[in-house]
Amino acid sequence: MEVRTIKVFTTVDNINLHTQVVDMSMTYGQQFGPTYLDGADVTKIKPHNSHEGKTFYVLPNDDTLRVEAFEYYHTTDPSFLGRYMSALNHTKKWKYPQVNGLTSIKWADNNCYLATALLTLQQIELKFNPPALQDAYYRARAGEAANFCALILAYCNKTVGELGDVRETMSYLFQHANLDSCKRVLNVVCKTCGQQQTTLKGVEAVMYMGTLSYEQFKKGVQIPCTCGKQATKYLVQQESPFVMMSAPPAQYELKHGTFTCASEYTGNYQCGHYKHITSKETLYCIDGALLTKSSEYKGPITDVFYKENSYTTTIK
């Protein structure tokens, strides 16, 4: 009895394709271990004539594949690729409408935090270190965002349907971005203890939790000093293409032309909904596939993004 075979390709990165001759009487799992086709788990399936010449994702289970996976995804987590594939199996079914010149995501599976993050990423200057993220990001900007969303979920250790947080998501993504040249110098002034300067680099240099107003941050924000008295913390120097200011959701007025974009969060910790506000020729609110415009805006804002380049204080 002759062994019926077909020729397929296996890959971990969709760049390096490895030619395989597979036995049609055995499952993919018996031949390769966990195997995925377009995100779908085909591990328990036997090869079919229609699979001839198709590319299958496999887990990096030998040295060659491990090197290829690390170079593309910059992670050695053995569960990463499987999590990416199972997320992709959902995100490829989502709709990605162009809204006001940006790629958004039609609401499904509690994905409003991903839509808000995706919209924000198209408006701030950011370059990702893992080629996987950078490639998928370019495709997302062009309207094909399924891979990018699935990668975000995998890097953030999230599953489809789980509630997510924009600030946490951005923080994970910033860790995989090139923020080497970003720098922030802060000064804390206390009447009792004097003053202390701190220099922050990388992710810490672009994120701040405690106030939404970048102007206020430049002037000074009140913080408790270690001595128990009130101290003032203010920005001395900022070198970065953008800054992200966050605070627990509270009524906040966004003035046209003073910011790049913002995240609105309605609801409580267990259950809520994100919308995205962007400042173009007027203010726009993007909620999944829905767009509304207004000249002014007041609502429960939790993150505001500002364009920056270089700032030095005039406070002496």
Rank of each mutant, 00 (worst) to 15 (best):
A40S: 10
T43D: 04
T211R: 06
F9L: 10
N14Q: 08
S279P: 06
K298C: 13
G39H: 06
L254S: 02
K229C: 14
R66L: 10
D180C: 08
S246L: 03
G202S: 04
S50N: 10
Y84A: 00
I277E: 05
A115N: 09
Y265V: 08
A87H: 04
H18M: 10
L119K: 02
K44T: 15
A69G: 00
G194W: 03
L186T: 12
T5M: 08
I152Y: 01
L65S: 12
V99I: 11
V3Y: 11
K293L: 09
V22C: 11
F242A: 07
T116Y: 03
I45P: 01
K219G: 09
Q270T: 15
Y28I: 02
N178V: 06
E264A: 14
H256R: 12
Y57F: 08
D77M: 02
Y84N: 00
T302G: 08
V203K: 15
M170I: 09
S294T: 12
P78S: 09
Y214S: 07
Y72C: 13
K54Q: 12
Y36S: 02
G101F: 00
K298M: 14
Y57K: 00
G164W: 04
Y72Q: 14
N129L: 08
K54T: 12
D62F: 03
S213P: 07
G257A: 11
N110S: 02
K158W: 02
E162R: 03
G220I: 02
D38F: 11
S294L: 12
C285I: 09
P224E: 13
T159R: 15
N110I: 02
Q31F: 15
C190A: 01
V304C: 06
C156R: 00
V67R: 11
D303T: 12
A115Y: 01
Q238T: 07
K307P: 11
D62L: 03
G39P: 01
A177G: 09
T314L: 12
G267K: 11
K93T: 11
E68D: 10
F56C: 05
T266N: 08
G267C: 13
P47N: 06
F305M: 06
E239S: 10
Y155R: 00
L186N: 03
V236Y: 13
V185Q: 08
A154T: 10
G33S: 07
D23K: 13
L65E: 03
S86P: 03
L133I: 01
L102Y: 11
V188N: 05
E264D: 07
D109C: 02
R4M: 12
V221R: 07
I45M: 09
T43Y: 12
K183W: 05
S25T: 14
F9W: 05
D109S: 05
A205W: 01
A231L: 03
K280N: 07
F259N: 09
A115T: 11
E204G: 08
K229V: 06
H74Q: 13
D287R: 03
F305E: 06
I45H: 10
L119Y: 04
P300R: 14
T198P: 05
L283H: 12
N16E: 14
H276G: 05
E71F: 03
Y96W: 01
Y96V: 03
T169M: 14
V42I: 06
P130L: 01
Q196V: 10
T55M: 08
V58N: 03
Q237P: 04
D13K: 00
C193I: 01
D38P: 03
E239Q: 12
K219T: 10
E71C: 07
M244D: 09
S25P: 01
L212R: 12
Y284N: 13
S263M: 08
N147S: 14
E215L: 03
E264P: 04
K92Q: 10
G143V: 01
K191Y: 09
W107N: 15
E281F: 02
A108F: 00
A177Y: 03
L17R: 10
S246G: 07
C225V: 04
Y36G: 07
V188D: 06
D63R: 15
E215D: 10
L212S: 04
D135P: 00
Y138F: 12
S25G: 10
T312C: 13
A140H: 00
L59D: 15
Q98P: 06
Q216M: 12
S213Y: 04
E162D: 05
V236N: 05
G220S: 05
R83K: 09
E162H: 05
T64H: 08
S86V: 08
L119P: 00
K93E: 14
V21I: 13
T91R: 02
V22E: 01
L212K: 12
K275H: 04
L119W: 04
T11N: 01
D23P: 07
Y265S: 06
L235Q: 03
T198N: 10
S104Y: 00
P241I: 06
S246E: 03
F80G: 00
H74W: 06
G210H: 01
K307A: 15
Q122S: 00
P131M: 04
P47T: 02
M245E: 01
M244V: 07
D23R: 09
G194V: 01
Y208W: 11
K275I: 03
D287F: 00
G210T: 00
L119A: 08
V42W: 15
E68F: 02
L291N: 11
Y252T: 13
G267N: 15
V304N: 05
V58T: 12
K44R: 06
L212D: 00
Q134C: 04
N61C: 13
D135K: 07
S50F: 13
T314H: 14
V206N: 04
T312Q: 13
K158F: 05
K95C: 15
Q238F: 03
G161K: 07
A289E: 15
L133G: 00
Y72E: 15
E296I: 15
N110H: 02
S310N: 14
A250S: 15
Y84G: 01
I124T: 05
E296F: 10
G82H: 07
Y137C: 04
K158H: 08
Q270S: 13
Q216A: 15
C227T: 01
I124P: 02
K46E: 11
A146N: 01
M85E: 02
T27D: 08
V189F: 10
L88D: 00
G288R: 05
V3F: 08
S263F: 04
F70H: 13
A142W: 03
G53D: 15
Y36P: 00
Y284C: 11
H74S: 05
C190M: 05
Q238N: 03
V21R: 12
S86A: 09
A154G: 01
T64A: 13
V185L: 07
M209V: 11
I315W: 12
E52L: 10
P131T: 01
T292I: 10
S310M: 14
A140V: 14
N110W: 04
Y138M: 14
N111A: 02
F217L: 12
G288P: 03
E253F: 04
T282W: 07
K54L: 13
D62I: 02
A87L: 06
M26V: 15
M207D: 05
C261Q: 04
A262W: 02
P300L: 15
I286D: 11
H48L: 15
N309Y: 12
T43I: 09
Q195I: 11
Y284M: 12
S263N: 15
A247W: 09
P224N: 14
Y36R: 03
E144G: 05
A262S: 03
T91Q: 02
T282G: 09
N89A: 11
E308V: 13
T5V: 15
M24F: 11
G101L: 00
T10Y: 11
N309D: 13
Q122N: 02
E296G: 12
R167T: 07
D180E: 14
N110D: 11
V22N: 00
H18C: 13
Q122W: 02
V206T: 02
L81V: 14
H48P: 09
C193K: 04
T75F: 01
Y113W: 15
Y57C: 10
Y252G: 00
Y265A: 07
V21D: 15
E52I: 10
T302F: 06
R184E: 03
Y137N: 03
W94N: 01
L59I: 11
L254G: 05
L186K: 06
N268I: 11
G210Q: 08
Y28Q: 01
T159E: 14
E215H: 08
R66W: 07
I45R: 14
N16T: 13
A142N: 09
N187L: 14
L235R: 01
V236F: 07
T5I: 13
Y138P: 10
T120K: 04
L17K: 15
K7P: 13
K7T: 12
G257R: 08
L151Q: 03
L119F: 02
V160L: 04
T116V: 12
D23T: 15
